[in-house]
Design a protein around this nucleic acid. Structure first.
Lengths: 220, 220, 220, 220
DNA sequence: TATGAATGAGCTTTCATTCAT
DNA sequence: GATGAATGAAAGCTCATTCAT
């Protein structure tokens, strides 16, 4: 993973991903499970091959290098993490809800369900994003830019409605990023076999919005 | 790191840690820096030896295995993370401040300063805690137990003073854990060269306590 | 190239070489170019297939093994190297020229033109003849026998005319072999992109015949 | 052998070559024999290890890469090939002999004895110089420059004494290079188990100087 | 105590070859 | 005939660990 040309890889992926052999699926499946459990660096290609029920050479025929196998797992997931964050979708959600609290709940429910549906891959992505300096350098900026830009828009939208206390937009954005990031990291790579219900999300968002301190006026 | 007998190791460490050779210091120093940068799995003992300016054999003479070298970096740091969390200290802090908000600020400032002073080791600890399943299994329960038990006590303490809205104590504890964990992970292993000022901490705690939403009564 | 049964192969070749598919031509063409550039051992069949624009399997369908592909390049060239050396042709040339010098010039011009016209194949042949012990064992005796027997005949022919100083025929033959061999090797595998003009050959032969030292009598 | 920085390697070699382990000697010895017989590309490090009676890892502990093992065989030999060709030595030899013929005989006897004493290494060097494009690119210019510059000086020296027919100096030089090169290649990599006596050399040089043709004036 | 040469298991990767389609 | 997915043996190389000095 020396010289990162992620764009090239993404393009190459797109071209190659036309048809996927049955064996390829098994390889990716096996790799995801073992990477998720033991981490990329501690997983040998021979183990992947054994679990996938293919010859070791088959892995390299399709993915060239072990690094590339990791990328072909991570990148598609990465791309899918953000489509719903496309600006128009964001705006639409924002328009259909009454408050930032509702917006955040709707947004998080959607994305967390996506993560739960791909729990294993998500685990791999988060772990490697933390561990792999190269990958981090390439993907994090992309991630935080996408996330912050959009969330900040939403914050501004509701700020105009007077929903927020007087703190800078980007501080709110960063705080949300930290909290959501912490939430995902703790659930995905620190705790095992987590599930998050919609009620959990509702509660967490309420706390973030309203704080855990008692209101002076007695309301919650 | 197959069969973990952390207690044994801790005891053995204690016995051995009486005197540390000059060479040992150099080894540990080098190991911390390289582990922090490249991760444990991607660091070879030969590289550590080279950077430390000792023979490779010397590492094994002192630490037996590479795993053990990692432990002798992580465990002392780990133990030092909690002394101030000893129950009496906790209680004392809690008694000397006027509110949970102040308590949290005092507590976090203390611990974050400790982390900043040992930034490199902290990085290693967090990274390996996330990545190394074995280590996680051994240390996480210890950590969360220590942290939760004490924070919950503090929460109960201030709850009696009517400082919290009506949510279960352990939910508040877990939420704080998530937020603080997220804060540390994002700063230590996702972002580079971070520093956190006391003001940053004050702000963050205020937000957690008070929420980001505007109060109905107009106060902040 | 473990068990060499060149005769069998030659026969098999003859049978197969009747018709050459368009794909076969492309394969052989590609193989010649890459073998010439990088050497047989450093060339993979997959690269040949890619350059030839065929599937890797196609190579094996036609040639069975990589070794056999090499042979089907080398052997035909090898056979074509000597037809004009058939005894009668040799004798005829010898009869039509006035001196051994002229004979040698005529002979070399003819053969070197043939080599130049097949520069790439010649390169492969020479390189592998030197590098591949198995091939060497099979082909060299055949080559030197063919060459020496005939050249020696020519030498004898002109010796009777008193053209040579008094040295044994076979020493003259071996010396010519060495010189011509050195000439070819240096031009084909040591220097790049050589061309040899007829004047070059005339000069070289003159020097071999007459030496580079000044004649006592002042003639050249 | 991708990026050739021969000078760096030479320097590194010099530094490392201080002390050679017993195992190192066995490795180099084994490598020379097998490279000489089967060629570099057809020799596996595992075979070298087996023949040398060491673990495969030992090879890489000392030489880092297989390429580097080859270089540490070739380069020292290469450097030793030319010391006696230092200009002053050349000039001295030239001054102490009566003719170019004698000079050439003295020079060749010296160098050929050196080659015979290191027959196996010489075989490796010549074979790889021919086969290995990278090595060729690096070493050939150095070789021909060293050789040609000095031989041309000697030729000029004797030319002033009127020893040569009227042919350009550099053509004589190139011709000698071709002949000597051909001689070495044919003896080292084409024929097996050769020996060259001083008489052989005398004869060969005589032929080169005087040619194989009978003099018009009847002298030899 | 400290060294560093030696090890060998295990790693990623390459490649000639096979075979179902 | 042609394909290209699949194979698995073998390649070069890394590395934690041992041990004689």
């Amino acid at each position: 993973m020396s010289e990162s040309k992620l764009l090239d890889v993404l393009i190459a992926q797109a071209k190659l991903s036309k048809k996927q052999t049955e064996k390829q699926q098994k390889i990716v499946e096996a790799a995801i499970h073992i990477f998720a459990e033991k981490g990329y660096a501690n997983t040998s290609t021979s183990e992947i091959a054994k679990v996938a029920g293919v010859a070791e050479g088959t892995i390299f025929r399709h993915y060239g290098t072990k690094d590339n196998l990791l990328l072909s797992i991570i990148l598609p997931f990465f791309k899918e993490t953000f489509p719903m964050m496309a600006e128009e979708v964001f705006t639409e959600i924002a328009s259909n809800v009454d408050s930032f609290e509702e917006f955040l709940k709707a947004f998080l429910k959607n994305r967390i369900h996506f993560f739960l549906e791909n729990k294993q891959i998500a685990k791999v992505v988060v772990k490697e994003l933390i561990y792999n300096e190269e990958l981090k350098k390439d993907l994090l900026p992309y991630l935080s830019e996408n996330f912050l830009v959009r969330v900040n828009k939403a914050v501004e939208f509701f700020k105009e409605r007077g929903e927020f206390i007087d703190i800078p937009t980007d501080r709110i954005g960063r705080m949300l990023l930290t909290f959501i990031g912490g939430f995902l990291v703790s659930r995905l790579v620190l705790l095992h076999d987590y599930t998050v219900t919609d009620e959990d999300i509702d509660d967490a968002v309420s706390l973030v919005i309203n704080g855990i301190g008692r209101r002076e006026d007695g309301t919650e």
